[in-house]
Design a binder for these strands. Structure first.
Lengths: 344, 344
DNA sequence: TTGCACAATGGCAACGTTAACATTTGGGCG
DNA sequence: CGCCCAAATGTTAACGTTGCCATTGTGCAA
């Protein structure tokens, strides 16, 4: 606030850092009174407080995190371990992490974990030397030690995954429900079956979507048609669209992400098929946003922000109490676009 | 490593945390020797080290960050302050932050700063109580106190912006050069002028692109045509494309991002104009990736990962030494796609 | 045998903060 | 006037780690 120029405080630049001791000396009070003032304790006279505050301003005092958390035994920080920073939905998840942390007065410490080997243990040990009270691990694939992993004692651990873990709370988008919503929506529109464009087998969420698609069809007494395996790119969707264009039984296609769905539409069109007149197409992720201005892709929108918030709430909200293991699935919302035709 | 079951260490769960003292007692050495073992000092006999390591394993010792950094006066952590977590390129920048931090043995602490008011001071004071040795601020807009801001003493501060600051190092994509590359490329292809689809005026990077476009045209003796202001969305690009379709002087359009460029193409097509036969279109950001499978949008690809790495390198690489203020601009790469026609 | 260099280890203090307890001060009341 | 209570402030110790210096042990040359 006080707009001091650099020259006004030559000492501060020399000294390592300003401690309560320095403030106490200048204000003519004890260190404890300074501490109490920092925490706005009611047992300090207002005029004393003001004197201390003036000294803090003059010296540019800011509380030392290390001393504080050494004393308290808490860091008020949640660690986030990611094997891949880049990935669909990570930005929204981080927004959720940050928002929830903010709410509880916590900070977020982000760490990239080398995925070789891809184990929870490596994420955990990476975090163990950092100033965090709990940790969140974002799982994209299946860690080798998922079944045997134990969280560090005293370190509340939340995994972002649909799988359930006996010792760690988990939270994620409900991929299974997502597929159920899409398939049942298409069946309700009068389609006899739903074709699926899948993704690389190593993707956990992709496999769960695939399983959801398969089981929902089974539940409706329909034998799932042969699936086409893509690689998340629009190119692979394009190829899949071309391949499916010649199949007369194919009137509805569910693609495991929006890029493939969009590529698929273009592939179908390149073979003379129209969307949605001839074939309906639904994607997942709502990642294209409004890229295509004249046609809205039917898709499923996930609330990754909420996933992130839940994870951090679980840790920061517990306030040291080791709260029980919980499993949370957050459903996506089906966005009905212009790429699905009602056959009824 | 040792797969102990929970029951094997009931004590660890009870005691707050295991300190060097506990390890020392169990190993029958002094605390100092434990510390030396942790740091793998050569002046500890191998067999002693092994005994200490065994004790550490048995007790599940992990060094306490607070004690350590209190002693050292360093946190080995870089703070990142963001006004908006969600934003083009942020994920790549974070990947860069994390990669550089990793390289130096640092961690990243992420903080969302409330943008009311939008000041560097608010970002700075938010960081001041956190365990960080330096900080990075990602600027999307112009902070009210940009000219008067002073970094906290002893806290190396890097701003992610194209603007230069007298007291803080800065780094960003070179938006000006980006526009120069695009405009000169289009002029080289034989276009007489380049129309521009701009963005909301509050965007710093957008305004710099606009300025680059204007100045490059001037430098070539061309009076910039009236620009169309969009709002980053494909919809606004669509409208702009329709508006420009009737302008016979318009043979080349430069849009301030890819979504608008793509919308623009669709807008032109809706008016019977073909791309690139009738009009050439170039975007910025390479954010569509390969969403459109059958046509590659000409665009500029930025290296946000490198921007992020530079910022963290500047702080973590300095190792406490207050290194001088530097300004770094990282040029983008023009990606020649299928949406530009050679008129020559 | 003594002295010396060097390797290995231990003791102590301090980093900044704050909880717990101790002390001082002032005021009300019998 | 003395007593006691409460408000305001001070003192001490401890959190876990590690730099500095002291001490012990070991082998070798004089």
């Amino acid at each position: 606030m006080a707009s001091l120029t650099r020259k006004d405080r030559p000492m501060a630049a020399v000294k390592k850092s300003v401690s309560v001791k320095d403030v106490a000396r200048l204000a003519g009070v004890s260190e404890q009174t300074v501490s109490r003032t920092v925490h706005d304790s009611p047992s300090v006279r207002p005029e004393t407080k003001e004197r201390v505050r003036a000294a803090m301003r003059e010296l540019g005092y800011r509380p030392n995190f290390a001393g504080r958390s050494l004393r308290r035994g808490k860091f008020k920080t949640v660690g986030v371990a990611m094997f891949n920073i880049t990935g669909t939905g990570n930005l929204d998840r981080m927004e959720g992490f940050a928002a929830a942390a903010d709410k509880h007065g916590y900070a977020i410490t982000l760490t990239k974990v080398d995925g070789h080997p891809y184990t929870l243990e490596s994420a955990s040990s990476r975090m163990s030397a950092l100033p965090v009270d709990g940790m969140v691990v974002i799982m994209n694939r299946m860690p080798a030690d998922f079944g045997t992993f134990e969280p560090l004692p005293g370190m509340q651990t939340v995994l972002v995954t649909m799988l359930e873990h006996p010792l760690c709370s988990t939270v994620d988008n409900d991929q299974f429900d997502c597929s159920r919503q899409v398939v049942e929506y298409l069946l309700r529109q009068g389609h006899k079956t739903v074709h699926f464009i899948s993704c690389p087998e190593r993707s956990l969420s992709g496999m769960q979507r695939e399983e959801g698609w398969r089981e929902t069809l089974h539940a409706h007494g329909i034998e799932p048609p042969r699936l086409v395996r893509g690689d998340w790119t629009a190119q692979s969707g394009y190829a899949a669209g071309q391949a499916l264009a010649d199949d007369p039984t194919c009137t509805a296609i569910y693609a495991s992400n929006d890029a493939m769905a969009y590529g698929c539409i273009r592939g179908l069109e390149s073979r003379g098929k129209h969307v949605p007149e001839d074939v309906s197409v639904v994607g997942v992720d709502d990642s294209l946003g409004d890229i295509v201005p004249d046609r809205r892709l039917a898709t499923v929108r996930f609330d990754n922000r909420r996933v992130g918030m839940w994870a951090v709430d679980k840790i920061a909200g517990a306030e040291g109490v080791v709260s029980g293991v919980e499993h949370m699935l957050i459903p996506g919302v089906l966005v009905k676009g212009d790429t699905v035709r009602d056959l009824r």
